[in-house]
Simulated scan of single mutants.
Amino acid sequence: MSLTTDFIAELIRAANEADRLTPFEIKRLLNRSVATIREMREQTGIPGSSRARDVVIDLQVAAAKADTLPEDEIRDNLLDAADIIRTLKIILDGKPD
């Protein structure tokens, strides 16, 4: 498995155990997701958006509020991050060298 695939699996596992995560663990996962998404977007040539509906902005806000987020929002944000990273991985894997 690649590091990206491992991280996607880690995000999904964490989402399934959202009730057991500490705010520190939530922040760490969401901030790693933001960094990964930005890096992968750069590699694919897909620009980010400065608009309010960019998933990276949503993840950053969630990371900042990690200690007050309800369990369902934690789960949803982790699954959103995993989905975006998986999609970007598919794009990168299909991209000619």
Rank of each mutant, 00 (worst) to 15 (best):
residue 15 A to S: 02
residue 16 N to W: 04
residue 69 L to S: 00
residue 1 M to D: 05
residue 92 L to S: 04
residue 11 L to G: 00
residue 32 R to W: 15
residue 58 D to E: 15
residue 6 D to R: 14
residue 93 D to A: 10
residue 64 A to S: 15
residue 96 P to E: 10
residue 95 K to W: 12
residue 55 V to K: 05
residue 65 K to G: 00
residue 80 D to N: 14
residue 32 R to L: 13
residue 37 I to H: 01
residue 6 D to K: 11
residue 9 A to W: 09
residue 75 R to Q: 00
residue 63 A to H: 02
residue 40 M to L: 04
residue 60 Q to G: 06
residue 97 D to V: 13
residue 36 T to C: 08
residue 90 I to W: 07
residue 76 D to P: 06
residue 82 A to I: 01
residue 23 P to E: 09
residue 1 M to V: 07
residue 42 E to V: 12
residue 42 E to H: 14
residue 50 S to W: 11
residue 56 V to R: 09
residue 91 I to A: 07
residue 26 I to P: 08
residue 61 V to S: 09
residue 70 P to Q: 08
residue 29 L to I: 00
residue 67 D to P: 00
residue 86 R to V: 00
residue 51 R to T: 10
residue 64 A to M: 11
residue 6 D to G: 13
residue 72 D to I: 09
residue 89 K to D: 15
residue 77 N to Q: 14
residue 29 L to T: 05
residue 16 N to V: 04
residue 67 D to N: 10
residue 24 F to L: 15
residue 85 I to K: 00
residue 38 R to Y: 03
residue 85 I to V: 01
residue 28 R to H: 10
residue 21 L to V: 02
residue 96 P to K: 04
residue 55 V to E: 05
residue 18 A to S: 08
residue 41 R to Y: 02
residue 2 S to P: 07
residue 95 K to G: 03
residue 6 D to Y: 09
residue 11 L to S: 02
residue 71 E to S: 07
residue 17 E to A: 15
residue 22 T to M: 01
residue 87 T to M: 14
residue 14 A to F: 02
residue 36 T to Y: 05
residue 68 T to M: 02
residue 21 L to W: 00
residue 23 P to C: 11
residue 25 E to T: 14
residue 96 P to N: 01
residue 71 E to L: 10
residue 67 D to C: 02
residue 24 F to S: 15
residue 76 D to R: 03
residue 40 M to G: 01
residue 20 R to F: 12
residue 33 S to L: 03
residue 71 E to H: 04
residue 26 I to H: 03
residue 35 A to K: 04
residue 57 I to P: 06
residue 27 K to G: 06
residue 95 K to C: 09
residue 62 A to K: 01
residue 27 K to W: 05
residue 97 D to I: 14
residue 88 L to K: 03
residue 87 T to P: 09
residue 80 D to I: 11
residue 65 K to E: 10
residue 9 A to C: 04
residue 52 A to Q: 12
residue 82 A to P: 00
residue 36 T to L: 06
